Simulated scan of single mutants.
Amino acid sequence: MTCGMAHATPDILCIGSVLWDIIGRSSVHMERGSDVGGRITRLPGGVALNIAMAARAYGMTPALLSVVGRDEEGDTLVAALDRLNLITDTLYRSEDLPTDVYMAVEGANGLIAAIADAHSLERVGDKILAPLDGPLRGFAGPIALDGNLTRDLLARIAGDDRFAGADLRVAPASPGKADRLMPFLTHASTTLYVNLEEAGLLLHAPQPDAPTAAQALRARGLHRAVVTDGPRRAACAHSGGIVARDPRPVMVTRVTGAGDTFMAAHIAAEVAGAGPQAALDRALDAAATYVSGDTY
């Protein structure tokens, strides 16, 4: 364990991937085999961590439930998170597993390719949930959960009494992992955040637009569905109906982490008392600011 914000009380839990992001970005259009100039950065990342960092920027106090190795990369990462005032003493620090890493290449035409090496998170299993039986027992705030956990662990969480009735906010991490979230379609209190492609994979049929997809997910039994579609209309289907809005147009300069920023902004807005339309508006504006390269 680490010290981190040991005496802080969290108001959101972020469960899932905490790792290093290695991102190569170029301002030119790229195709398979492209060899171009650009910038390569290493930043703290992972879906759960991206949500936590964005939530912190909106004034929330996130605690991280994940695994970080006791290697040099892990010590450096945890030190960086402590400086960001995230609660890190809830992390599982592994003696024998390396710190996970994500690598992506982005061009002017968006994400070209990415590889997520989250094997330590997959191997450590439910050890990351230990704080729920200790200092976080009975936590009643929102819980952000990402699909980088194994299919088995996600299914167990969906049926776990500790999460029954919890304000679960779930994201698939990538289209390739969307089907891992099937058990949450009938969880009594889950809000699912997906893009249009991921919604189609969960519904086993392509969807024409976000409002249609959100309503179809609700019809399958989901408590609440938030569906985005890049620069096109986004929607939130809930027990009282559906709200939708087109994102404001911006020049896209980065894409990795945009969905996580959207999700964190939506959660923070609702915690602050915003209704369905206002929360969706706030999240869309935050994501637009993020992808344009401005600070949020």
Rank of each mutant, 00 (worst) to 15 (best):
T2M: 03
C3V: 13
C3A: 11
G4N: 03
G4C: 05
M5D: 09
M5E: 13
P10I: 10
V18I: 14
W20A: 02
R25E: 11
R25M: 09
S27L: 05
S27K: 14
H29L: 15
E31S: 09
S34L: 10
D35S: 15
V36Y: 07
R39I: 09
R39N: 11
T41D: 11
R42K: 14
V47M: 12
I51L: 10
A52P: 04
A52Q: 06
M53D: 02
A55F: 07
A55E: 03
A55C: 12
A55Y: 08
R56T: 04
A57I: 00
Y58G: 01
T61K: 05
L64F: 12
S66A: 15
D71I: 10
E72F: 04
G74S: 11
A80S: 13
L81G: 01
L81V: 11
L86P: 03
T88V: 10
D89W: 09
D89T: 11
T90Q: 03
Y92K: 01
R93V: 13
S94Q: 05
S94V: 02
E95C: 01
L97K: 01
P98L: 06
A104L: 02
V105T: 15
V105H: 04
V105R: 06
G107N: 05
I112T: 09
I112A: 13
A113C: 15
I115V: 15
A116S: 13
A116H: 03
D117F: 00
S120L: 03
L121I: 08
E122V: 09
D126W: 03
L129M: 10
G134K: 14
P135W: 02
R137K: 15
A140I: 02
A140R: 14
P142R: 07
I143Q: 03
I143G: 02
A144V: 01
N148P: 12
N148T: 08
R151H: 14
A155S: 15
R156N: 09
R156S: 12
A158V: 09
D160L: 06
R162D: 08
F163M: 07
G165P: 05
D167I: 10
L168P: 06
R169N: 11
A173W: 04
S174L: 06
P175W: 07
P175H: 11
P175N: 05
G176D: 08
G176S: 13
A178K: 07
R180P: 03
L181P: 05
P183F: 10
F184C: 09
L185R: 10
S189K: 11
T190F: 06
T190W: 07
T190G: 01
E198K: 05
A199F: 06
L201T: 06
D209V: 11
P211A: 12
P211D: 08
T212R: 13
T212C: 08
A214R: 10
Q215C: 10
R220D: 10
L222Y: 05
R224Y: 00
V226W: 02
A237K: 12
A244M: 13
D246P: 00
R248S: 07
R248I: 10
P249A: 15
V250K: 07
V252I: 15
V252L: 03
T253Y: 02
G257S: 14
T261R: 08
A265T: 00
H266D: 05
I267N: 00
I267F: 00
A268I: 04
A269D: 04
E270W: 00
A272R: 13
P276G: 05
A279T: 00
L280C: 02
L280W: 02
A287G: 01
A288S: 15
Y296P: 01
